[in-house]
Simulated scan of single mutants.
Amino acid sequence: MIDIYAAEGTFGDPHALAVELATELKAIERVPDIPMFRENTAAFVHQIAPGSFANVDGEGGHVRVQVLTNAGALDREQQLAVVERFTQLVADAAGDPALARRTWVLLTEAAEGGWGLWGHAHTNAELVQAARDEIGRLSAGA
């Protein structure tokens, strides 16, 4: 799950940015291209009133991107890739290269057993098994 917080009007096409970030996260995580991951890797663009946030110097115009994954989903290489790619995609979507210096990307992990999907709080092992089961169902139906 991805949450992007930015002042209203920062992005010309928030929907396109949401799709692009979700697609990029799925690629970086290297998960199979199955409905389970396509339907449950999503981004939400929260547009907030300009002037309703500031750093300690009173400056606004920042973007906060929070990426929530299941515990251990991203190794160090993937963490670096998410931060680098998301920062660039946000700046590109805003048409403001300088926004890269004002974009914060926060990587957060759900606690083991805290990834709720289909009405169940999944452990990592259960998520892996659910993906394997779906791949098996898809293969059997092909």
Rank of each mutant, 00 (worst) to 15 (best):
M1N: 02
I2S: 03
I2W: 05
D3H: 14
I4C: 09
I4T: 05
A6N: 03
P14A: 05
A16H: 08
A16F: 08
A16G: 11
L17H: 03
A22H: 03
A22K: 04
T23A: 14
E24W: 09
L25S: 02
L25I: 07
K26P: 00
A27T: 11
A27H: 14
I28W: 03
I28A: 01
V31E: 03
V31G: 05
P32I: 05
I34R: 12
I34V: 13
I34Y: 06
P35H: 05
T41L: 10
T41W: 05
A43F: 04
F44A: 04
V45Q: 01
G51I: 10
G51Q: 07
G51Y: 12
S52T: 15
A54E: 13
A54K: 13
V56I: 10
G58N: 06
G58F: 12
G58C: 09
E59R: 15
G61W: 04
H62Q: 11
H62E: 08
R64W: 15
R64C: 12
L68P: 00
L68Q: 12
N70I: 06
N70V: 08
A71N: 08
G72D: 11
G72Y: 07
L74H: 04
L74Y: 09
E77V: 09
E77Q: 10
R85P: 01
F86N: 01
T87G: 06
Q88W: 12
L89S: 10
V90G: 00
A91E: 00
A94W: 00
G95Y: 08
D96V: 05
A98F: 08
L107A: 03
A110N: 12
E112L: 00
G113W: 05
W115G: 01
G116Y: 06
G116N: 13
L117I: 10
W118D: 06
T123L: 09
T123E: 06
A125G: 12
A125F: 07
E126T: 02
E126W: 04
E126M: 08
A131G: 11
R132W: 14
R132H: 15
I135N: 14
R137D: 11
S139A: 15
A140Y: 08
G141L: 14
G141H: 10
